[in-house]
């Protein structure tokens, strides 16, 4: 009983310790990046470029939905219609752009990374890399995490662009607010720090999702079933820590 209670406290700490150690090794291996440069490009395409369509789709829908719902809630004729733009655009830039991107990529990129590394672990491919004299952390993890840090802000920009665009389009086509008024509202309430905050957020999300997924995948145990477990855990843990980081960032930076 005492041991179980102790485990509840100690297990997360032990996990955090192993995660930190993995990151520490990864940072140590950044210097060897030139050897793994090809991997970095490959990961940037896989995690970044290839994710653009799905991220744009999700952002497009969330932008459109924001517009429709804001219009639905603004029934008072006293409030000008441009308010819709003033609400949709900052919420896209501040929150939705980064979080929608994050969630989509936790599923798409996080799960892929965990499954890839998990399979490599259980089929001894990681051991094979190590036995050749390669730094498996440098070879496998550093390019993935770096690709996340570099490409997530890019995807965030794409998400905001498409989200705001679709919000504006739906507002105009649906007769809620003409595009010009939408933009007037957006410009009036625009805070220059908002997009910077969004980029910071997406960098943090990119780091969290990729590093957590790498951690889960790299330490997979127990064959095909273990790979499945790691994949699920990676996606779930990424989402949870993404929300946590979202709150922490909002509380500290805003």
């Amino acid at each position: 009983m005492v041991k179980q209670t102790l485990d509840i406290v100690l297990n997360p700490l032990a996990t955090l310790g192993r995660y930190s150690r993995l990151l520490f090794h990864a940072f140590g291996a950044v210097a060897e990046l030139s050897i793994y440069r090809k991997n970095l490009w490959e990961q940037m395409v896989k995690s970044g470029v290839d994710s653009i369509p799905i991220v744009c789709m999700a952002a497009g829908f969330s932008g459109a939905v924001s517009t429709v719902q804001t219009a639905y809630q603004l029934v008072t004729p006293l409030i000008p219609r441009s308010t819709i733009g003033a609400i949709v655009v900052p919420s896209m830039i501040l929150e939705l752009g980064a979080v929608v991107t994050g969630f989509i990529l936790a599923g798409r990129v996080g799960a892929r990374i965990a499954a890839e590394l998990g399979t490599m672990r259980v089929t001894e491919q990681i051991d094979a890399l190590e036995s050749m004299g390669l730094n498996s952390i440098g070879y496998l993890i550093v390019p993935r995490v770096l690709a996340g840090i570099i490409m997530f802000p890019v995807l965030y920009v794409a998400a905001c662009f498409v989200g705001i665009g679709s919000g504006m389009l739906i507002g105009d086509l649906g007769g809620f607010v003409p595009a010009e008024e939408f933009l007037v509202g957006a410009r009036e309430f625009f805070q220059p720090f908002d997009p910077i905050f969004g980029v910071i957020k997406s960098i943090v999300f990119g780091f969290l999702i990729t590093s957590i997924s790498c951690f889960k995948g790299y330490y997979t145990q127990g064959g095909a079933e273990g790979v499945g477990r790691s994949t699920t855990q990676a996606a779930v843990a990424s989402c949870v820590f993404l929300l946590l980081a979202d709150l922490v960032l909002a509380a500290t930076l805003l």
């Binding site: 399979t119 001894e124 050749m132 004299g133």
Partner: peptide, 29 residues
Amino acid sequence: RRVRRNFGVLFQGGALFDSMNSFENVAFP
């Protein structure tokens, strides 16, 4: 890692990198 380069290891399941074809696997080291 320098010491390990003296070794070649054949793992139980082969442990070929499944993202590469056979040629690339052999060429990898």
